[in-house]
Design a protein around this nucleic acid. Structure first.
Lengths: 220, 220
DNA sequence: CCTCTAATGTGAGATATCTCCTAGTTACAT
DNA sequence: ATGTAACTAGGAGATATCTCACATTAGAGG
């Protein structure tokens, strides 16, 4: 992970009125490499992260040691927002998929300068509220779609530079399907040239996958 | 709908520090009867509602006139929270299932006294954040369960005094299944004495349904 | 470098669910 | 009171998905 001061990094100014130059002066740009941990389960959160670029996955380690993917993170998402507003108490693993760029604001700065700032509180309420609505809509639609459409969307979400290489036992759990059926569906997508096998993962044809998803939407 | 001043209603004090007696003096207790509208689609929200008792359903009217159930509301839920934090701009139908009791705070009061109050903003951020986590966990689990378990849980959620009488074409959409399969599953539950047909709806055996759900959880 | 575990990959039979259809009943509007 | 639309109910065939099993490969740890 590379750590830089915000000025050093010459960030494009963010359009957040609650982020004063004083706060930014004490914040950092973090750059994580592929598979690097942003947060480790059970550790204390030290920063509130604004994702500037890249992707990550959030993983919960269950009591039996099993790792379960909870969700994927994209640019313009926050990491640690639910912890900051006390909606959740325990941190979960957050792992970079490909390279991940974050603006990291130290928690003491958040607590001292932002946590009672109505501008910030309003922003984070709106953000979490919009996230809730998006998630509900996504799940509601997803539950009527057969697996190949949901897999197509996941491949687009998760691929970096057109290449997908997640752990498929975890992906099967995440999509709520059996490992067997997931593999069956990967094979179907290969046969229909939406994806190509490459090493342990797949190159994806994003444009064709988008067409498939669109076709699937029209069925309902 | 019955409308009372809060004092008139002699409400048990709510444990919300941001609700001063001055605010409560200008708020109301609303009591809606079964199938009464709390909010109508597209109308301007006039109150932020704290649900004290009862149940409701949130319905979105699609462009083609079709009504789709988005979610169900229980005691201790808020109605209008996502609108108040500007996460959503348009109101949707909210309809009482059985009798519904709400503390209703006028929007002008919310805007004048609460919307810049860090106590209130913190509360509503935490509330929406917890709601997001619950919803995500619920959907994640739900997608691996076959219909009879999900239907069992819905019956418990929705029944009033042990009686279920929702519109089943809308319930099929909500559960993401076909009308045919939903009816097939109702028949199975009847045959196994989890529910009994009564008029256009069903009496439910809540204890037995909970046993079924528990058994279903143990399969995964 | 070797060994062991976890991930990948596939076959085969069973089941949950879908699609298409028809018939009967109820509630609402005129 | 009547007619119509929407809801309830179920049959039958097809398909998406599950379950159980086994074989191969790759990666991690010693």
């Amino acid at each position: 992970m590379k750590k830089m001061n915000v000025q050093e990094a010459q960030l494009t100014p963010l359009t957040y009125p609650f982020l004063s130059s004083s706060i930014l002066a004490r914040s950092y740009l973090f750059i994580y490499e592929k598979n690097e941990y942003v947060i480790r389960t059970g550790t204390q959160l030290d920063f509130l992260f604004f994702v500037l670029a890249g992707k990550a996955r959030i993983i919960n380690t269950e009591a039996n040691g099993k790792n379960v993917i909870l969700q994927f993170i994209q640019a313009e998402d926050l990491i640690g927002d639910l912890y900051v507003v006390n909606a959740e108490k325990h941190t979960k693993d957050v792992v970079a998929i490909g390279q991940l760029h974050c603006l990291a604001i130290p928690l003491p700065i958040v607590k001292q300068h932002l946590i009672n700032d109505p501008l910030f509180l309003t922003f984070i309420s709106t953000y979490i509220g919009q996230k809730l609505l998006k998630r509900m809509e996504h799940f509601s639609l997803a539950q009527t779609f057969e697996l190949k459409y949901r897999l197509a969307e996941l491949l687009i979400t998760v691929a970096v530079d057109g290449y997908y290489s997640e752990n498929n036992t975890q992906i099967a759990d995440y999509l709520g399907t059996s490992y067997r059926h997931l593999m069956h569906t990967f094979k179907k997508l290969r046969e229909q040239n939406y994806i190509k096998k490459q090493g342990r993962g797949y190159m994806i044809d994003e444009a064709k996958l988008i067409q498939l998803i669109t076709a699937g939407s029209k069925l309902s």
